[in-house]
Each structure stands twice: as structure tokens, then as C-alpha cells.
């Protein structure tokens, strides 16, 4: 981030911090900002940027801010659902980005439901997590049987104060009661639980928000690429907020800024020591 821009961002943040009602919210705000400042650059935490304005503007959101911050700020249960079978990886990417932006370094418990073919796109790859900005050392993988065991493991993990990413596929045991339990456990520990469901799962849930995720063709990066095909640009997702407690549905198109070339702005060159330039 160029220096002038970062100073501007700091000023707006300071103004926001002063407006925050209690100490805790203020601290969180500052932490977020520092993380954003430190996270600039290649191979570190990058921001989920909004491509298009949401159909219904979310209140309390600065123009350049992460559109999901307001949802992430609420402790509780969030449901994720891929748009189709093949979009399940997109749902996981969305969940990982979501968790990566949560403040603090609580353990991240990934509860896998064995025998759930709808969501079987493989185990979390620690290096892949690191790429999305999550420290793999925080990851705890739990291999439970699909259904009640997996839900129980999620609840235990929440009670222990962890962030949880759970797979609940088509599990019929994930109903209103089970989701209420998870939500309550998450609220009490101030944690978050993201439950990934199968694309064709139905049933009610006590989640704060319910998202439907789909992949979108990303921009091309022609300077990379292989065999005449352009390279992969930033990852794009369409996140449809289908349901939201006490709010209207919305739809976002998001891009995960991970392009090393675009992040390397001239400012980084200008900041380099003269010797380095000479050599």
C-alpha cells in the first residue's frame, strides 16, 4: 500500500475507533487495521475485495472495507452451501478466507465428516491454508463419522474456544436443534462455526447467515500461463447471502487478491535501499 494511502486508511480507522462504543470493539478494530497494514505484500494475508456493490448496501460499512466484516464480527453459526456439487471447493475457500480474517490466534478445528461423498474433495492442505493466510500450526483436523459424532466434535471444539469449520453434508442430524446448540456454544465462547452443507441439503437451521457459494471465472494473467493458455488471475467467488437474521439478503462478487505482480507496486521498489537497486 502506498504510504499516503496507508496514512489515509489509518486516519479513517482512528476516527472509527473513536466512534466505537466499548473498549473491546475498539481493540478489535485496531487489531484488524494493524493486521491489514502488516498483511500487505506477497504471500501474506490478503483482503477479500468487493467487485460489485451489494444489491442492498450493508449498513455501517466503509466504502473500501471488506464487505464481510460486519458478518464476521458476529459470534455464532454461519451456514455455507455450494451452489452445485463441483462448487464445494469454493465453499471451503470462502470458509478459509473468512476464518483467516478473524482476529486472534485461536486453534482452527476442521471437523471432517467421513463417508460424506458430497463434500469429498480432499483433506485440508496445510500449505494451501498458509497461502490463504492461515497458519497451519493452528489447524487441528478431526476425522469423525458423519452425523451426530461430527456435530458433537464441533460443539466440544467450540466449548474449548476454537474456531470451527465443520462438514455436515446431507446429515439429517443437523437440524434446528443441533444448529441451535452449535450457535449457542459459539456465542458463549465468542467463537465462530462455519458449517459446510451439501449443495442439495435442505432443512431449517438456526444460523445467523446462510451463504450460497459458486466459483466465477477469474481474470486472466497472460504474463504467466502455459501452453498458450493464460495464467490464473485472482480467485473469484460469488457469495449469495440467502438468509440473514434481522437483515435483507444480499449478493457479493468477491475476489481474493493474490496476484504477486499486482501487489508489487512501485512503492515497494522505491522503498528499497540504493545498494540493492545498484546490484
Amino acid at each position: 500500500m502506498p504510504r499516503a494511502a496507508s496514512r489515509r486508511a489509518t486516519e479513517t480507522t482512528c476516527a472509527q475507533v473513536r466512534e466505537c462504543p466499548d473498549r473491546r470493539a475498539r481493540l478489535d478494530r485496531l487489531r484488524d487495521h494493524i493486521a491489514a497494514l502488516e498483511g500487505e505484500g506477497v504471500g501474506q494475508i490478503r483482503t477479500l475485495a468487493r467487485l460489485n456493490a451489494p444489491e442492498a448496501p450493508v449498513s455501517g460499512l466503509a466504502a473500501n472495507d471488506d464487505p464481510l466484516a460486519v458478518f464476521r464480527a458476529q459470534a455464532g453459526l454461519h451456514d455455507l452451501r455450494p451452489d452445485s456439487y463441483l462448487d464445494a471447493p469454493a465453499a471451503y475457500v470462502f470458509a478459509a478466507c473468512w476464518l483467516a480474517r478473524l482476529p486472534g490466534d485461536r486453534p482452527l478445528v476442521w471437523v471432517r465428516a467421513r463417508g460424506d461423498t458430497r463434500l469429498d474433495f480432499g483433506a485440508p492442505c496445510p500449505d494451501g491454508l498458509a497461502e490463504l493466510g492461515l497458519d497451519p500450526a493452528r489447524l487441528i483436523r478431526v476425522e469423525a463419522r458423519a452425523g451426530a459424532d461430527a456435530l458433537w466434535a464441533m460443539e466440544e471444539a467450540l466449548n474449548a474456544g476454537a474456531f470451527v469449520l465443520g462438514e455436515a453434508g446431507l446429515a439429517r442430524s443437523y437440524d434446528l436443534t443441533a444448529s441451535r446448540r452449535l450457535h449457542r456454544a459459539a456465542r458463549e465462547s465468542g467463537g465462530q462455526v462455519l458449517v459446510v452443507r451439501a449443495h442439495d441439503a435442505d432443512g431449517t437451521s438456526a444460523a445467523l447467515t446462510r451463504w450460497r457459494l459458486a466459483s466465477m471465472p477469474g481474470a486472466a494473467a497472460p504474463w504467466r500461463g502455459a501452453g498458450g493458455l493464460p495464467g490464473l488471475g485472482s480467485l473469484r467467488l460469488r457469495a449469495v447471502l440467502e438468509r440473514r437474521r434481522g437483515g435483507a439478503p444480499a449478493s457479493f462478487e468477491m475476489e481474493w487478491e493474490d496476484d504477486a505482480v499486482r501487489s508489487l507496486e512501485p512503492a515497494a521498489l522505491a522503498g528499497r535501499a540504493p545498494q540493492a537497486l545498484a546490484s
Partner: peptide, 21 residues
């Protein structure tokens, strides 16, 4: 706390259920 969580999960779901990379 993480160790306690691992204990509880292992006690109910079986050994080697909890894994760290």
C-alpha cells in the same frame, strides 16, 4: 485447553481422531 479437547474427542470418537499437521 487444546490438549483437553483432544482428550475428550479421543475418548469418545476413538484414538487418532485428532490430528495436527
Amino acid at each position: 485447553e487444546a490438549a483437553r479437547l483432544a482428550d475428550r474427542l479421543n475418548a469418545r470418537l476413538g484414538a487418532d481422531v485428532v490430528q495436527h499437521p
